[in-house]
Nucleic acid binder design. Structure first.
Lengths: 334, 334
DNA sequence: GCGGATGTTTTTAACGTTCAAAACGTCCGT
DNA sequence: ACGGACGTTTTGAACGTTAAAAACATCCGC
């Protein structure tokens, strides 16, 4: 593979002139530029990323940690990863994947990747309540951007992009209202989850706005599983709450609800309208199809990369994006 | 961040001695080694990957293309990616993600990543019949290993690791047989798919071995979707084939079958036992739970990295691994 | 004709490692 | 005492870019 030196020899100019042809062509006389470009093309010259990075101290790689929470799959991760890679590539950068223990035990891994100049910065996701990564990276002065906020902190430790969960829940409530539902439940998570509280808040506010009852209609699941979705749905029905709509905090919980409705002989999606969140592959594969809130992955990824690679001006940047409701059979009019 | 030079000054030795302390400590006298290691620790020295890669021409990054086939999600990709990253990290390497157009249009992307020294080689997956990547990479002398074989080629163009689809189908047939089933269908893909033919062959051979009928019991779906799985199941049932077992080539097809059985009032997983392939998140979320063949991701990833980073000896390396049948409610005894 | 300004190209050094050769110190046999 | 072998450490160069300074060529006003 040709080097600048070889291209320079071929074009009968200095190495710097070839570098200028690539990076500052305005410096060169037109005929010199043409001759150099011909040599570059003829020798199929490709710049060596290592050499450049050594001199400039920028590796143009962005670190992303592959989540691996036990017993949980990330149903839309392939979409997110593809969008993230494409967005990074548009700026000449790439994504470096790595694994790390959760919580503070993972900090040495992040530290090492940055210190050894394997990455310039990080994109974080799967943010947890009191996630230590954000504060730690900010303290270390390591560039990062987060897909998702750190809940329970009044000031965010760094820039983030998120999807408006409250707005999403409100959208789902309104949709179910428009299909005729008037007693809409909310299947959420434990109170410790900021994301859940945010989405629950959206459900609550929209129900109030529409004059719908909310008392006794919001339940918290112990975990994000199908069984839990089924269990709390059973509990709601057994308690005599005559619900005709369910907004679930995730697709998995929504499917649990659908399963319980089916088990009780209720026509899934008809007597009770059900919606989920994430518009995961699950939403499509179940009959009659789950109405779900889709996150705008391309936009999310684009904003993440824009924030991470943008000129630093000291103030955190925040972007709250809107989900889109994908309507399927599970919320057909009753 | 400290450099070798700074550590050397601190320890009152040459740069080379510090490098030796890290890479060839046996060369150093014990007291010198101790003094240098103290300086390394005190100054929190971390080697600069760019500098090392420039000198050695090895970047220790492995390229992996994020699949993005339209209307298809890769339900076990997060598991695969995590296993791949962990395996690469165990050898001091990392995974660099990228996107590329499918087929020959993607070759320039692979070429560029290697020529610019962004990666040392590639792990390929989602291999298609007549996939051009393998032959092209071999021709270019670019290191790679494939998760999956290139079907329809008598000699593989490069090293691969794969899961034995035929053995998997045979395992599923045997399991259904042991639950009492005697008329077991196979839901496959079009004949053009080598993977499908392999899995169909396993179903066929095991049925023959067990003395079970096979005529008219193997169908090909036009695509890998739930609707197709439902459609061909309906066709089998409408044709009067009194099937009591279904081995589906994928979880999606299996779920389609389950849906159609449910629609016809057949108790899913009881009158007709159903199995799928991949043990994806779908297998767990449906009721009664789908029996499915799980691919050994950690072993696959470990073998891929071992082959890619092993000493090159000119002959392709091949490893065929065995899937594991995860038994759930969809194949309960009839 | 000369000096200053501008355009164009070259020269020099830097980035931070690793590789290979050279130098230095010690020991032992002659 | 000296030369050879071995152990230990240092020296010099290389990898291939980019950044900054220097050099060279040209033009124009005075």
């Amino acid at each position: 593979m040709a080097t600048l030196k070889q291209v320079a020899a071929h074009a009968e100019v200095s190495v710097q002139t070839v570098s200028n042809a690539l990076n500052a062509p305005h410096r060169l006389r037109a005929d010199t530029l043409e001759r150099v470009n011909k040599s570059i093309e003829l020798l199929n010259y490709r710049p060596n990323r290592n050499a450049r990075s050594l001199r400039t101290s920028a590796v143009e790689l962005i670190g992303y940690c592959v989540p691996n929470w036990p017993n949980q799959t990330h149903l839309v991760m392939d979409q997110f990863l593809h969008a993230l890679c494409a967005a990074a590539e548009r700026t000449g950068r790439h994504i470096l994947l790595f694994t790390a223990p959760p919580g503070v035990d993972g900090m040495p891994t992040y530290d090492d990747l940055h210190a050894r100049r394997l990455v310039d910065g990080f994109v974080l996701s799967q943010t947890e309540t009191h996630d230590p990564r954000h504060g730690w990276l900010k303290e270390q002065g390591i560039p990062f951007v987060s897909f998702g906020r750190v809940w329970k902190q009044t000031t965010q430790p760094g820039p983030w992009v998120d999807v408006d969960g409250a707005a999403g829940s409100a959208l789902a409530v309104r949709h179910l209202y428009e299909t005729g539902r008037r007693r809409i439940a909310f299947l959420g998570w434990p109170k410790a989850s900021g994301l859940a509280e945010d989405r629950a808040g959206g459900w609550r506010d929209e129900c109030k706005r529409l004059g719908l009852p909310i008392s006794g209609l919001s339940v918290r699941c112990r975990e994000d599983s199908l069984d839990e979705g089924a269990r709390v749905t059973a509990a709601l029905l057994d308690a005599g709450r005559e619900i005709d709509g369910i907004v679930a905090l995730s697709d998995v919980l929504a499917l649990g609800a659908l399963r319980e409705l089916t088990r009780r002989g209720l026509t899934a999606g008809h007597q009770v309208g059900v919606t989920g969140f994430d518009d995961s592959p699950l939403a499509d594969v179940v009959s009659p199809g789950l109405t779900s809130l889709r996150q705008p992955m391309d936009e999310i990824a684009g904003e993440l990369i824009k924030i991470l690679t943008g000129a630093p001006d000291g103030t955190p940047t925040e972007r709250l994006l809107q989900p889109e409701l994908v309507i399927r059979g599970s919320s057909a009019p009753g």
